[in-house]
């Protein structure tokens, strides 16, 4: 549980409750002196079947925070049929700004994963959120060998459900390569930007900057004039990361 508050122009980590294997670094102040950067670490090396990681993040008024995951989230095989779970809940008070760029989630062979992210924010707060879902350990030829991957991602701006993005991928029970599903893609990248700043951004300009190749497909859409949703479907992780970083840097 992390709580941030703005005090005398500086965002401070005012409350931090942590239990092993999750650990947060202290607040670091990099280029932007007003923004607190905190690294999230996972000391066990990955989620074992039945594990449940829980993150609660609360940004009080005007707090400005960047959370970075130190490494990819590895989900180990579920040999006891239990799912590994990750719950993230975020609350952004008025004027707060949160950036969260996690590393990829990698479900190993026979893994079961159940992720759930709920973001509640105010109209004048800002969220920049990224996510990468990997097919498994690609370099070991272990793509789509996992048992099940479920994820639910919701953004509520006050009473309005701005995004409700849920996935349930089960490679043995679904033709993932069929037209309309993942087709040839291996990696799924998503980026969400919700902010009053969206009003002054040209979505078409952002769209025209995408580099589309045989390795990567991308698009962007507007969410009610309040947010932007970017999605990438890619066969190459590095090309995907490069593209996501390019857009990320434009929005920060």
């Amino acid at each position: 549980m992390l709580e941030f508050q703005k005090k005398n122009g500086l965002t401070c980590l005012t409350d931090c409750f942590q239990q092993s294997p999750l650990k947060a670094s202290r607040a670091l102040y990099l280029d932007d002196k007003e923004k607190a950067t905190v690294y999230l670490m996972e000391s066990s090396g990955g989620l074992v079947a039945g594990d449940r990681n829980e993150y609660k993040v609360h940004l009080k008024k005007q707090a400005n925070v960047c959370l970075l995951q130190q490494s990819a989230t590895k989900v180990y095989p579920s040999l006891n049929e239990l799912s590994s779970a990750q719950h993230v809940s975020v609350q952004l008070d008025g004027g707060a700004r949160l950036e969260w760029m996690p590393e990829a989630i990698i479900p190993f062979k026979d893994a079961k994963f159940n992720g759930d992210t709920m973001i509640r924010m105010k109209r004048d707060s800002t969220l920049l959120w990224g996510e990468i879902i990997s097919p498994g350990r690609e370099k070991r030829n272990e793509c789509f060998y996992y048992d099940e991957f479920r994820s639910s991602f919701q953004i509520w701006v006050e009473e309005e459900c701005l995004a409700y993005d849920t996935l349930h991928l089960s490679p043995t029970r679904m033709p993932l390569q069929q037209i309309g599903l993942l087709e040839k893609s291996l990696y799924i990248g998503s980026l969400w930007f919700v902010s009053p700043e969206v009003q002054s951004i040209s979505i078409r300009d952002l769209h025209d900057k995408f580099k589309i190749s045989k390795d990567i497909n991308a698009s962007v859409t507007g969410l009610e004039g309040k947010g932007l949703h970017f999605r990438w479907l890619a066969t190459d992780l590095w090309a995907l990361k490069k593209e996501m970083n390019k857009i990320w840097n434009q929005l920060t």
């Binding site: 996935l167 991928l169 309309g180 993942l182 893609s185 799924i188 497909n217 698009s219 999605r231 479907l233």
Partner: peptide, 19 residues
């Protein structure tokens, strides 16, 4: 609980349609 946005290719095509 069974609401899922699994047809990601179709969603991508819908996003691209406006362009």
């Amino acid at each position: 609980d069974d609401l899922y946005n699994n047809a990601l290719g179709i969603e991508m095509a819908s996003m691209k349609h406006e362009y």
